[in-house]
């Protein structure tokens, strides 16, 4: 019924460090019966450089990215910050018709499932206590959920997908919309504040009983996992795609 061509964008750090998140995203889309493939020549979107102040060095990267995904109707990516960067910064860095097309057709995974596919219940199975960490770029940049700052009706696309999972318990956090402190190179330029922010975020989850912490951004989870392991805490991090791949539709 749906023969659009979907290109899966797997960001560099997922490719290199967390392939399981990429595999899960791929499997999820396949299980939904979609025509999805991964262009072999895709590389980094340039976000880490641009956020560090070197956007001007990434013009070639942007063009390359646009070329490698040009043939697809939709681009789906399991990383909200990369999607945010492409959607909001690409046209300023390297404006062209190709780039414009890319900006209009790229979606974060959950966003794609909810907004484009219009799927409400994925028949997931995940009998665990799960805490959702809202990655800032997904939360505020892609408006995947409402925040406390904006006075608007409350919603969350990730919650709406996960809350229907069989056996799942979603934890209620004290601070729903607080940053984890990763922030790309921020974590290295400001290590003390970054670790403190991550520790606070983690405590919120542990205090409220999260066994798993999930997010739309593996980079936040990488930071949180690094703190969990250093402090020998019990929680596990898991990309949201790893829960979505349990779908039975």
């Amino acid at each position: 019924m749906w023969d659009h061509k979907i290109g899966l964008f797997i960001p560099c750090y997922i490719d290199q460090l967390y392939p399981r998140a990429g595999i899960a995203a791929f499997e999820t889309l396949r299980r939904l019966g979609l025509n999805v493939s991964c262009p072999p020549n895709q590389l980094c979107c340039g976000q880490p450089l641009a956020n560090s102040g070197a956007a001007c060095e990434t013009v070639a990267l942007c063009r390359r990215f646009a070329d490698s995904f040009l043939e697809y109707d939709y681009i789906v990516c399991p990383s909200s910050s990369c999607v945010y960067h492409i959607r909001h910064h690409y046209e300023k860095i390297a404006r062209s018709e190709k780039v414009e097309k890319i900006c209009d057709s790229i979606y974060e995974l959950c966003e794609f499932i909810v907004d484009v596919l219009g799927i409400d219940d994925m028949k997931l199975l995940f009998p665990h206590k799960v805490g959702i960490h809202h990655s800032c770029h997904g939360l505020r940049g892609l408006e995947l959920a409402s925040t406390g700052e904006l006075i608007q009706p409350r919603y969350s696309k990730v919650h709406s997908l996960l809350e229907k999972a069989e056996g799942i318990t979603l934890t209620k956090l004290d601070r729903e919309d607080e940053c984890c402190g990763f922030g790309g190179t921020f974590s290295v330029f400001e290590p003390h504040v970054s670790v403190r922010m991550g520790t606070d975020r983690l405590s919120d989850h542990l205090r409220n009983g999260s066994e798993f912490i999930t997010a739309t951004d593996m980079s936040c989870l990488m930071h949180l996992e690094a703190i969990i392991r250093r402090q020998r805490k019990k929680a596990k991090v898991i990309h949201v795609a790893e829960i979505l791949k349990t779908c039975r539709v």
Binding site: I10, I14, D15, Q16, L17, Y18, P19, R20, G22, I23, F26, E27, R30, G33, L34, N35, V36, S37, C38, P40, S187, V188, F189, P191, H192, V195, G198, T199, M222, H223, E225, A226, I227, R229, R230
Partner: peptide, 30 residues
């Protein structure tokens, strides 16, 4: 060391996504 002061380094898996994809993508059918 700016990273490792309060955090562990990530432990990468055996293969990258791209390596996995090259081997397995064709096995997946929709």
């Amino acid at each position: 060391r700016a990273w490792t002061r309060g955090r562990k380094l990530p432990r990468p898996e055996r293969q990258t996504f791209r390596q996995w994809y090259a081997r397995n993508a064709s096995k997946h059918t929709s």
